[in-house]
Design a binder for these strands. Sequence first.
DNA 1: CTGTTAGCGCTTTCAC
DNA 2: GTGAAAGCGCTAACAG
Lengths: 354, 354
Amino acid sequence: MNIRQVAKAAGVSSATVSRVFTRSAPVDPQTEHRVHKAAKQLGYFPNTYARILSSGKSYTYGLIISDITNPFFPDLVKLFERHALEYDYETLVVDTDYDLKRMEQCVRRLLEHKVDGVAIMTSEMEPKLIQILSRRDIPLVFLDTGKVGRNISNITIDYEHGIALAIDHLLQLGHERIALIQGPPTLKSAVTRRNAFISSLKRQNITLRREYIRTGNHGVDGGQAAMNELLDLPSPPTAVMCSNDLTAIGALDAAYTRGVQVPSELSLIGFDDIQLSGLMQPPLTTIRVSRVEIALRAFMALYDAIPGSRKRTANHIIATELIARRSTAPPPKPSGESQSTKHTVGVRSAQNKN
Amino acid sequence: MNIRQVAKAAGVSSATVSRVFTRSAPVDPQTEHRVHKAAKQLGYFPNTYARILSSGKSYTYGLIISDITNPFFPDLVKLFERHALEYDYETLVVDTDYDLKRMEQCVRRLLEHKVDGVAIMTSEMEPKLIQILSRRDIPLVFLDTGKVGRNISNITIDYEHGIALAIDHLLQLGHERIALIQGPPTLKSAVTRRNAFISSLKRQNITLRREYIRTGNHGVDGGQAAMNELLDLPSPPTAVMCSNDLTAIGALDAAYTRGVQVPSELSLIGFDDIQLSGLMQPPLTTIRVSRVEIALRAFMALYDAIPGSRKRTANHIIATELIARRSTAPPPKPSGESQSTKHTVGVRSAQNKN
DNA sequence: CTGTTAGCGCTTTCAC
DNA sequence: GTGAAAGCGCTAACAG
């Protein structure tokens, strides 16, 4: 079943059939109708590959993520694909597995598929590969790691604001011994969060102890390990800000395992607001970064881009918001011993449903 | 950059270059080397679409899932893709969103992409669509919902065994008041589990009360609702078997919300062993069905299939195993009074590490 | 082992 | 508004 058979059946040329299906040129309503009828009758639909081959446009976007198994991504993928489908684009999703070597293969695959644009949603990144893409005038959009330029848009998450929100929340609850489990120092986004944490504390005149900054890996195991280190401290923190939710989940697990009650003895706050977080016991207080927004911006950045141009290239800022659930509460009352605390905040406002 | 330029640069014909890249026919090592050199120098790689168009094979498999956002699937997708990539196949993943109407569009998309085979991993299914696929001699493999036949393989999960394992576990702990939160009665796999539950109990001479069977939706909310119904019963169960892990997570949440301690007052057991389950508090006891195995069998079923033939078509059985974690424990000691008081159990034995 | 050649099914000038 | 015809880049006989 091909375009010519339809053409014959409708008594027109294949060019006309093509025009009908691609809407690339006006066609007489009469003939259009005949074509549609013939097509339906024959059960015809265009061959994607032939179409791509001859048009030179693949109508597909590459979507590079770290790992579909990381709960941050499925949402994003699904949302992105939804937009793409709406505009008749396909999405080719590739996992880097957090590995820059594999990223190279990914880019290669995308190139083979002649993608019309690439959204790079990983937190790690390889400048060399960007060049490869960029040199071919393929529109690019980064999550957080790119610089706006020719063909390149970027989506910036307002980490600073998010972290400030979190710290304020903790401060209002009365915490002073606040620790951080940071992400891998190799990730720009993790460093940004770390810096925001430090400056937030400074701004509020809270002294930050060196030993209160630990390093995780943005995974559950890293959170567990770091939390254990924190709990081993002679004077452990009463609240811990985690670089992402997975880290917080690991921290929660470590606390639980050691019999430390969250939130009555220890407050925990995450970042991202993955679905899972709301299901933990207790549900995690976290900073939400809207995947809905990211997906939309990312798609639109590609769709609006004009290949080989600096026009229509932009930096988009994604807001962050505090989702107060039940993993945060006022710090435990001082037990009379040395570590005296000042604030006494009785109301566990964050425990209210919201 | 195309095959001809490489051919020219290497001083051979395009057919030879093609042979080198597809390994479709032996080529003199000398010339092969020259071709590779030329290709590398020119930065050449084959155009997927041209290749597909002329060969008539797309080297892509369709993978139909319900929802990438359901934690059961990302694993499966990733594993399947890994195998596919290894054999130089692409995977086109499509979500039905549990909707048979959308499934039709999915199949259409797969058809447009001329997939060489389709793995249907959804629990719902639409016979009409199967026909469409099957009539075109596209090899198919189902998870649990198919009948082996021409072009059709099936993967059967040994639910009976899994459920029996779960029930035995509960029985050994001393439970007698065992309830079930079943999945949607429209899903074959849910019904199978329900039946297995009933017959397991019968085999062990445990009386099953009618009100102990509740219906969820294989999602968290359904689990919550059903658990609440169960807890409202005058004589609530001491253990609940859930049709899948998401249901169990909902049940856990409901229990927690109402102050019912798991596992000291209530044992919960899930099904699937999604990653999340190990991270809950307490970590969920569950029946694991190996996604690793499913992905491998599914891919191989397609890869080994001979289009248009009944040969190499098979039913594969996937074993299930009990993963005993900490959401199950002996039932609370009867407190002497009939129904009136809630059980008072001091020791949270299951909280010990194991 | 290698070259020649005819398409794969569609889009896209370029005429009319 | 429509048709003719030239490819898009590759594969697959078929010769040699």
